[in-house]
Amino acid sequence: MNVKEIKELVELVSRRGLAGLEIERAGFRLRIEGAPAQRAAPVFTQALADPATPEAPALPPAAPAAAVAQHVSPGPPGSGEREGFHVITAPIVGTFYRAANPDAEPFVKVGDVVEKGKTLCIVEAMKLMNEIEADISGTVVAIYPQNAQPVEFGEKLFAIQQR
């Protein structure tokens, strides 16, 4: 499954107002959650199917049946990936916000092309508004937490397909 196909699924969930959609194949699982109450773009999350590699990137490096896995190069944790999906994690514990304030447009949506340095979200702790920036240029392919959801240190926030 490539990014285009994933985007089509995201749009399907959004267009039909579906609560969600889940696809499971050998080695990987894709879940897309609709967010109709917030009138926001659907949030899609991808979960590892292989419990033996909890420190691995968002998608399993060894998933023979899944085309998505071809985009992933493993790399040591924290190093980022030179090819494929690059995962951005929370640098502090806090509350995840997709926009600067409740009336503002989200900083980014799934499918947006972002330049390195672009603000992706805010993680707030103790009235510290911590702007998280894209550390590579590419396409946003996943936004993991819901808006205003608490996130832990190191929790996955975004997946970006490097340009």
Partner: peptide, 23 residues
């Protein structure tokens, strides 16, 4: 908590920290 400045339980001032780190 966390950092509103009060006198006699009324707000005298406020603090907002905005921060960013590069890669």
């Amino acid at each position: 908590w966390p950092n509103d400045l009060l006198v006699n339980r009324r707000k005298l001032g406020g603090i907002l920290v905005e921060a960013r780190a590069n890669d």
